[in-house]
Every structure is written in C-alpha cells, then in structure tokens.
Design a protein around this nucleic acid. Structure first.
Length: 824
RNA sequence: GCGGUUGUGGCGGAAUAGGCAGACGCGCACGGUUGAGGGCCGUGUUCGAGAGAGUAUGGGUUCAAGUCCCUUCAACCGCACCA
C-alpha cells in the first residue's frame, strides 16, 4: 500500500480551521445534561506561550474533550489577565501605549492557543483591561465600599523603589519585591484597603469544606491566615493613666512575667519615655532600627536587642512591678504590638533576659524528672504543672489557660481573643495600567463611590509615563475633575489604580455570562454554572490568587449575587516544567519554546509528550528524546490506521470474538476504553491513560497479523482507539476518523462503551507462594472462589512436591490473584 | 526552628483498597529490512554466572509490605522573632 506520511502541519491547520468555522467549541446548554465548569488559570498576555502554559491547557483540554464525549455541558473558557506592569514598562521603554501592546500580545497568544487545538469557547473570552470588564470590577469595588469593606488609611506601606509602587504584604517575599527582586522600603501613604480580615475566620474554616483541594494548598492558606487563640491582657503602667494591652497565647504563664516589651513603632513609646531620662536612649535605638532592612529586621537569627524606656508595668494578677522595654523582636503589626515577656517559658524572651540580666521566674514544672526549672539553660516550653502562680498552683497548665482567662474576664483585666497573621489587603497601586479606583473625594462629603450609571471610570489616554512616584493618572488634564456623587459639588477622583489581583478574583464569574452589558453576571447564569468544578493552574497561586478569589466569592455570596461560597470545588496544581533539573528561564538559557516544538513535531506531539512524561501535579523534566518517542508513537498510530483504512471502511459492524486471539484483542480494547476513562476522570493520570492506549496499539499491531482475524473487530478496535486518543491528540484523530470512513468531525462523538463481559476472562494466571515466596504460577479457571482455588492449587502436582514432608499451617487464597501456603 | 511533600532500574515513571515490583516510554545492545544512513520491524535490557537479593536506612505489624506503624538519613516546597 502507498506510504502515506503523517503530515501534522497540514492536518493540524485543516482541523483547526474546521473547528473554528463550525463553531464546534461553543458552550452547549443541552437541557437535562449535567453541567461541568472546567477552568484553567488565565494567563498574563506577555505575548508568548511558555511550556507551563502548554502543560496547563493541555491538561484542561483532555478533561474538557473527554467530558464533552461523556455528554456534559462543558464550560471551558479562556481570557486574559491583561492589566499589569510589563505593559506599562513597555510603554515607558518603547513609547507604545500599554493598550496597543497588550491587545497585540493577546492576538498573538490567542493564535498560539488555537494552534495547540485547545477547545475553548472563544465567544466568552474576557480581557480584564477591557472597559466592558473593568466596569464591573469597579462596580464590585463600590459594593465593597458601600459595605464598609473598602477603606482608606494612612500607613507605612511596602514601597518598591524600582516598580515605583506600593506592594501588598503578600507581594513582598523575603523583603524584596515579588516582581522585580528589588529591596522593598517603607513609605507613609494614604491607601485603599479591602477588609479581608473580616473574612479570616470563614476563609480558614471553609478550607475544611474543600476535600477536592490538595492538602498542601490548604495548609499553606491555613498558615498564611495564621490564627492563634489566646488572650488580651491590660497591664497598668506606674504613674501613667493609659494601660498597656498585650496579646498572648499563653495566659497560663502570666505569673512568670518579668518584663514587658513594646514594638519600637508603638504609639505609646514616646509618651512613656517622656520625662524618664531614657528619651535619648529610646530615640537612638529607633533611629538605628530605621536603617535596618526588612529582611534583617525579620530574621530569626538577628540578635535580640532593646532598651529600657524608663517605666514599669504592674502585673494585674500578682501586682508585681516589671520594667518596660522596646525591642527589635516585637513587631508592631502583629497582635497589639506589645508583649508580656516570660523568659522561663519562651525562648525569645529567655535570650533577651539572659542578655540584659533580667529575672527568670518558672511557673510551670515538668511532670517528669530531669529538668530543674530553677536553673534553666533554655526556656521550658512544654506542658506541665503550675507553680509560683498563686491560686492556680498545682493545676495542669493547659487547664490553667482556661481558668486564668476566665479570671481575667471576670475581673475585667483582659479577655479571650484570637489573632490572625492575615492583614487587610492593600489594593492601591500608583500605576497606569490597572482598573481605576472609582472613588471621588469631596471636601464636604469625604470619599464616596462613583455612581453606577457613570461607570466605567475610563482610563484616560492623555497621560505621561514618567516612571515617577505618583500615579500617571495625575498627569491627565481632565481625569481628576469629578462631580461629588453625594452633594453634586466639585469632587476629585482617586488617581490610583487597583492591584491586578482584584481583576482575577472574579473572572470565573464573568465567564458564566461574559457578554452581559447590564450586569457583572446574571444570577441565573451564575446559578447554572458555578461553582467551577475543576480549576487547574500553577501552585505559585496557592496563596494569593486563590485566597483573594475565595474572599471575593464569599463577599458576592453574602451580597446575594453569587450562589456559592467557595468558587473552586476541585483544584489541581500542576507541577513545573523543568529542563536539566531547573526551571526554564532565559537567564539559565534552558528555555524550550513551544513554537519550535510545534513547528518541528506538531501540537499533538507536544501535547502527548507533556501529558505522558509525568503525572500532572508533579514536576516534568523536559526530554527531547521523549518528544521523539511521542512523535514516533503518533506515526505508528497513523500508519496503523492508514494500513487498515480500506478494510475498515468495508468491514461489517459488530463481531463475534470467537477465537483466542479475538478474545485477547477484544479484552485489550475494552480494557483500554475503561482504563483511559477512569484515569482521566478519576485521578487525572494522563500518563497511565496514554500508556494504556499504547498497549492497545501494540495489541492491534499484533492482532492484525493473526490469520483469520475479523475485520469487524479490527474496525471496532481502530475506531475505539481513535476515539479514546482524541482528547489527547485531537488533530490526528480527526484526520484518522475521516480516513477510516467516518463523516465529519469526531468532536461530539460519544465515548465508546465498555463491554464489561469482554473483561471477564475464563482463565487466569495465579501465583503460588510458599511462606510468602513465589514458587509457581498456575493457570486456573477464573470463576473459582477461594476455597476451590486452594483445593485446586494444593492438588497440583508441582505444588504437592513443594510442600511434601512439611506441615501446612495455613492456606490463604485470593481469587484471581494468588494462593499462599504457610508451611512448617 | 515549625509545617508539608517526596525517596522505586542508566533515565521519565507504573504498581488505583496490603496480594506477581519495574507496566508504558526513553536510552542502550543485538538481529532483520536497506546500496548506505535514517526510518521501520523483531529480540533483550533491576542486580547477580547462579542460588538468590532487591523499592533511601534500621526496626515492627501481617499468611503477604514499595504500599500500614515507628527510627534514622536525604532532597524539595511553604512559613519563619506571629508573642
């Protein structure tokens, strides 16, 4: 027969055009069919797809195409996280307007995605930089404002001198800017915040309602929210009216307090030091700290230092007076910015006390021997029995936590309290390419939200990109002028824009109803599609994006717009794509460009390799040889189908698997159909699904050489092969579907049915073990129960020989698997 | 320091609910086809000549352990003076 080559480039172009022209990927809403919302994290339109994208979207596409074949109404959308810094930097460097730059990049990347053959419903495409989108972003912001969850506050904020903008705490990693790696400084600025801390408890508690999320991600979020239980206690200060409020998780150690510490930035510090003669020492210490970077300040290895501020506090339980310090190890932005120090039972306090010769009073002693609490060499942080603690002596310290808290509340000295590590979300950015914050300031009425009918507040175009500290929006001649939405008088617009993380915190809702011009999304559409059944993306978004999206969803749920409290029912965090064991990066020079791979081997090969090389949640090591292997496999499939095409076209439908070889072929076929379905839907094990298909191909190759093989069975096998391979490599499968005599597209075909009966073999090989060691393999009838199996095996000549002369203690028989004979 | 994840051939990986370790692929070797190369096809490929041993380490539970429990080690990730 003629040698037909697998011309992937022509095939892929042909079918991509076919799909697009017929609009096959448009979301269907067939009544009665179950819905499935499948979402992959939308990309920032940098202009070029990288391998991480290819992996992300290939995974999604397998699932989308599979579920489509299973008859679901699948929502599988794509869009662009299109606001952000690179566009603005391009504007500063090259003089191109961010919008032009972004739109061009989107166009390029959209084509690349189409070139991969991903089945997106492009009718629902969104770009966060489009006014039709950010109008509703602004609207959501005004909802937050009306509910008192958006507020403006002057605060020292993280300032990136390179990006010239403020950063959220979450965007500062190890003291440097998350984006550019520049050392982050502090700056006093009035900024907008979202009160995510109001949702801290729910964000934490509802993690338990997400069994479909990786434990790792949930743990990371849990740690990030960082809830601690304890008590706030007021310590009176000698010769001073105001009290010093501290937070502690260890109220049981209250009698062990030997000094107090305020954060150097604490507002009480100056007032307390005044007139004590310590003013100078305090000022010098603070001055010194100012010149220390955040990294050094935050490092646990930093030596603890502090100064006495000249006053004493009174222990409200014991009446004992203790000195008050300021120290570098107490942070203003956690708890109350002040602590009680218990050196005997806290290592940090212990270190400090040793250095400054402060008293160490043990109040808990261990039940076990061996530790002399009166001569500690390090803090005793374990559980034990209360001592030196007045009425609480002798109590178990865990019990004392509750008892002392109760006492504090009864006496009005303190109260039980909870503290979170999570801070409110700083969302103001002094940048151009973001959603304008739709707020107006009026001398009379203060800050108010722009009226809904005036949204969107459009980004002005008459701005200068100077790269200076203030938002470029301030350079517009007209942008600032506004009418106060309350009194109608003269107002002034906010010129800061929003953190782009807001834009991506609700895009999944917009997809449900992407073209709605009157609402962010309709209740009806959100009711139908939400929640996202499966979300797929990189683990680097485990904390920020996913928590912000959960926060938005909860808020919109509370406001009655969104039907669910949690946006993503199941989450798959895909692993990174590595080359030579390292992350692909320009600086290392190990980047493999998807474009080149597609050009050389085609999109199907790229998809197949990426799905086959590793399970999706693990890292994937790029291998050129592996790509060759995937390409080879597709060629093998192509040749097989071409060789059999004519025979299949004229083959009868249906077959009788009468001979041994027929039954083997039939088994292999049905096994693959079942296995691939289970692997895709049950556990995203695309690698093993593909290996099952490879085995099926091997089986067909073998079967076609069998004399007397049946054309009907061959046809069934090849048809099934094409269908079950199609979610992975759709182009070649479409082509082969045509070549083997089927009309039109296989998109919309059903997943082949598995004939369970074909999977039941009449004979099965079982293992015979003696004392757990494999000694023999026997072929037996498959229907045997364990008793019959044991009898059969014991009666076998070879086996009897093995056990002759020994006493059989026990025989364990597992039908279909093995028999283990325990002898002495 | 705290929390999490992971350790299986030369390599990527498989073993899904405790039941034949190494599926599938890569690489490699040999053979066939070919003028040659490539391609394709076939055979072999954990170690060991063999008995046997073998899933990071040492122990345990079990008729049976890569899988469950404990010990130690290593790697990776997250958090890190959070009171």
């Amino acid at each position: 027969m003629a040698d037909i080559r697998y011309q992937f480039d022509a095939i892929e172009a042909k079918w991509q055009k076919y799909w697009e022209e017929r609009g096959l990927f448009k979301t269907s809403e067939v009544p009665g069919a179950e819905k499935y919302y499948l979402l992959e994290m939308f990309p920032y339109p940098s202009g070029k797809l990288h391998m991480g994208h290819v992996r992300n979207y290939s995974i999604g596409d397998v699932v989308a195409r599979y579920l489509k074949m299973k008859g679901y109404n699948v929502l599988h959308p794509m869009g662009w996280d299109a606001f952000g810094l690179p566009a603005e930097n391009a504007a500063i460097q090259n003089g191109i307007h961010p919008n032009i730059w972004t739109v061009a990049n989107i166009a390029e990347m959209r084509e690349q995605l189409k070139g991969l053959g991903i089945s997106y419903d492009w009718d629902r495409e969104v770009a966060t930089c489009a006014p039709e989108y950010y109008k509703w972003m602004q609207w959501i912001f005004t909802r937050f404002f009306e509910k008192g969850l958006a507020y403006k506050k002057k605060n020292p904020v993280n300032w990136c001198p390179s990006c010239e903008t403020v950063l959220a705490n979450e965007q500062v990693v190890d003291g440097v800017c998350d984006r550019c790696g520049t050392l982050v400084g502090k700056k006093e600025l009035e900024q907008w915040y979202l009160k995510i801390t109001d949702y801290a408890d729910r964000l934490l508690a509802d993690l338990d309602k997400l069994p479909g999320w990786p434990a790792k991600v949930k743990t990371m979020q849990k740690n990030w929210i960082g809830k601690s239980r304890g008590a706030e206690v007021d310590f009176p200060i000698e010769g001073f009216d105001e009290k010093m409020r501290i937070f502690t998780t260890r109220p049981d150690t209250l009698f062990g307090v030997t000094y107090m510490v305020l954060a150097p930035e604490h507002p009480l510090v100056d007032k307390l030091a005044e007139g004590t003669g310590q003013e100078k020492a305090v000022a010098e210490f603070r001055h010194k700290l100012q010149f220390m970077s955040d990294i050094d300040r935050a490092s646990a290895s930093l030596e603890k230092e502090g100064v006495f501020i000249g006053r004493e506090a009174v222990n409200p339980l014991s009446g004992v007076k203790v000195p008050i310090y300021i120290a570098n190890y107490v942070l203003m932005d956690y708890g109350t910015g002040a602590i009680m120090a218990v050196p005997a039972h806290d290592q940090r306090d212990f270190d400090f006390a040793v250095k400054y010769g402060l008293e160490i009073i043990p109040v808990i002693e261990p039940e076990a021997e061996g530790i002399d609490v009166n001569n500690l060499t390090e803090a005793f942080e374990a559980e034990g029995r209360m001592i030196n603690s007045g009425d609480f002596n002798g109590m178990d310290n865990k019990e004392a936590i509750g008892k002392i808290s109760e006492f504090l509340e009864k006496e009005g000295i303190g109260k039980r309290s909870e503290n979170f590590r999570l801070r409110d979300w700083l969302i103001s950015r002094q940048r151009y390419w973001g959603t304008p914050i739709p707020m107006i300031y009026c001398e009379k009425c203060g800050w108010n939200a722009e009226k809904e009918e005036n949204l969107p507040v459009l980004l002005p175009t008459d701005v200068e990109f100077t790269g200076k500290g203030e938002s470029p929006l301030t350079t517009s001649k007209t942008f600032r002028d506004a009418v106060c939405p309350v009194c109608g008088g003269k107002g002034e617009r906010e010129t800061d824009t929003m953190d782009t993380f807001l834009d991506s915190s609700w895009y999944f809702l917009r997809y449900c109803d992407a073209r709605n011009s009157g609402q962010a999304f309709s209740k009806e559409k959100a009711d139908y599609w939400m929640a996202v059944d499966q979300y797929i993306g990189g683990v680097e978004h485990a904390i920020l994006h996913l928590m912000y999206a959960r926060f938005f969803t909860k808020f919109l749920y509370d406001e009655g717009y969104c039907p669910v409290e949690e946006p993503f029912t199941n989450l798959l965090t895909q692993g990174m794509v590595l080359k030579d064991g390292k992350k692909m990066s320009k600086s290392v020079g190990n980047v493999v460009s998807p474009g080149e791979i597609i050009k050389k081997y085609g999109a199907d090969t790229a998809r197949l390799f990426i799905l086959f090389a590793s399970p999706p949640e693990k890292e994937l090591e790029w291998s050129d040889a592996g790509v060759e292997g995937s390409f080879r496999f597709l060629n093998r499939v192509f040749r097989l189908a071409c060789e059999l095409a004519e025979e299949i076209k004229s083959a009868p439908t249906g077959f009788e698997a009468s001979g041994e070889a027929d039954r083997e072929m039939n088994y292999a076929m049905n096994f693959a159909i079942k296995k691939v379905a289970d692997d895709i839907s049950g556990r995203f094990a695309f690698n093993t699904a593909i290996s099952a298909i490879m085995e099926m191909v091997n089986a067909i190759y073998k079967y076609k050489e069998v004399p007397g093989r049946q054309a009907g069975l061959l046809k069934a096998a090849v048809d099934s092969l094409i269908l079950i391979l199609s979610p992975f490599t759709p182009h070649i499968c479409e082509e082969l579907w045509s070549l083997t005599g089927h009309g039109g597209s296989l998109y919309g075909e059903s997943w082949p049915a598995c004939d369970e009966a074909a999977l039941v073999l009449d004979k099965v090989e079982i293992v015979v073990q003696i004392n757990g060691k494999i000694k023999e393999k026997l072929v037996v009838g498959s229907g045997l129960d364990s008793e019959a199996l044991a009898a059969f095996v014991t009666a076998d000549e070879g086996v009897s020989k093995l056990i002759s002369g020994k006493t059989v203690v026990k025989t364990v028989a597992v039908p279909g698997k093995l028999v283990n004979i325990v002898v002495r």
